[in-house]
Amino acid sequence: MYFKLITSLFVLFFSFGAFAADYVVIVNSGTGVSSASKSDVKSFFIGNSKKVAGKNMTGAFLKGDSSAAKSFFAEVVGMTPPKFELMWVKKELSGAGVGPKKKSSSTEMINFVAGKSNGIGFIESSAKAEAEGNSSVTILNLN
């Protein structure tokens, strides 16, 4: 009984840890934005707003089979990565907007955000140091 309980707590602890810390949201430093609400970021990624923290942004997302994408879409956007992509395909085919660009790695995402004066995206948390080492990129505090 104790063994089961400890195992469950162990699994719960690690799964929660993996879920909560798998992604880091980054923006181009030139935007001057350092923090934003989750609802603001969600609103931007699902196309309800072109702005995050009052600034116009151009976004990108990591491909859906990455752990960062899974946790970002579950925690911030509130849908699965395939549902997110389908939603944008539907919008694009009817002319209702163009979705964020897809990036296949955190390095590619950092380069995108650094090279776009109003870029925003998210990366694997393991790539946080790489982002912090790039002066054109700011880690966004989500609240």
Partner: peptide, 10 residues
């Protein structure tokens, strides 16, 4: 009506 061309999505 606006998404009928988007056959793969529905």
């Amino acid at each position: 009506n606006e998404i009928l061309d988007a056959t793969p999505t529905y």
